[in-house]
Amino acid sequence: MMKCTEATQLLSEKLDRPLSTKEKVSLGMHTAMCPACRQFGKQMSALREITQRYVQSDDTESEDAKK
């Protein structure tokens, strides 16, 4: 069984490279049983979305400005 330390690293690397089939299977088995790592995986995607919005405001004017 994969450890959380390994699972978290793969959950991060998943954002930077395609995982191998073997990695996907072991990771899938781990996250199926580990709510903490499942949450970590969601947070990795959230962190990416958050960072892409860095210094962006949510008011509609800034959207207009980009057009």
Binding site: Y54, Q56, S57, D59, E61, S62, D64, A65, K66
Partner: peptide, 15 residues
């Protein structure tokens, strides 16, 4: 002339 607010200007210059 595009910017009414600080936030919009900031978003734009950072882009």
């Amino acid at each position: 002339e595009r910017f009414q607010r600080q936030a919009a200007l900031k978003t734009w210059v950072f882009a």
